[in-house]
Amino acid sequence: MNPAELTHTIVFYGLALVSIVAALLVVTVKRIFRAAVALATVLVCGAGFYILLDYDFIAGIQLLVYVGGIVILIVFAVMLTSSLEDTEIRPSKSRKALGIISSLGFLATALIAFQSTSFPLSAPTPEQPSDVALEIGRKLLGYGSDGYVLPFEIISLLLLSAVIGAIVVARNPLKKSSDLSGQSEQSDGSAT
């Protein structure tokens, strides 16, 4: 094992350990805000995995969108809907058992399937496109058999409708003023 491979292996197992422990915390911790911090850890480890797989650009986007956007939105949702002393009530025993059985069942089935399937692997060190970001840009806006311009446009429509829908849903119907002042009052109500 050469040094590069050794570091690759060590980093893989280290990140895997951290992200699995953090993922377990996300689903079990009683204080919901701590779960959000654990989620941020899992997502940062995810970016680390993407770098290990040579997709630096996707790792950057993961950090930018997930940590800079989604986690902060989730933290906002926590701040608006619960207070520091709130702890989640434990799930009932039957529900817990159901969850464990189904997730372990899924895990076992998937692992058996992976073990018994021989995937058509590509050659050990094939050429990676020199500039992944450039290549992704070409794909996203290309049309024809290998372009994704239609899904790209649909995603942009989806995002637009999500933003408009979110404003419509979250707006306080009782208030005529801008929805931002409504939001800050909401937070005040949940803090006290």
Binding site: F33, V37, A40, D56, F57, A59, G60, I61, L63, L64, V67, G68, G69, V71, I72, V75, V78, M79, L84, A133, D188, A191, T192
Partner: peptide, 27 residues
Amino acid sequence: IGVIFISAVGGFGVLGILLAGWSSNNK
């Protein structure tokens, strides 16, 4: 990915601010 990275890590900083505000238990 320098430019993306530098705007991504800004998110950590603001996460620190949000954590501080939440954990202080002060309105």
